[in-house]
């Protein structure tokens, strides 16, 4: 396993799509982003920094 060439990023970033098929995973990635955004807003409001 150690002879696997190390990627150099960001030049090799595109290779992620040779492993992760966006036709399958793009929407789950967007939903995870949405859940994260909701979680961050929830915390910000719960610590009293929201507009209310």
């Amino acid at each position: 396993m150690s002879d696997v060439k190390k990627p150099s990023n960001p030049e090799d970033d595109w290779k992620i799509w040779l492993v992760v098929n966006p036709a399958t995973w793009l929407m789950p990635i967007f939903y995870a982003l949405l859940v994260l955004a909701i979680a961050v807003h929830w915390v910000v409001f719960s610590v009293g920094l929201g507009w209310h």
């Binding site: 595109w14 290779k15 992620i16 799509w17 040779l18 492993v19 992760v20 098929n21 966006p22």
Partner: peptide
């Protein structure tokens, strides 16, 4: 692994 070609990726 994903089935995409280099060009598509």
């Amino acid at each position: 692994l994903s089935g995409l070609t280099e060009q598509q990726a």
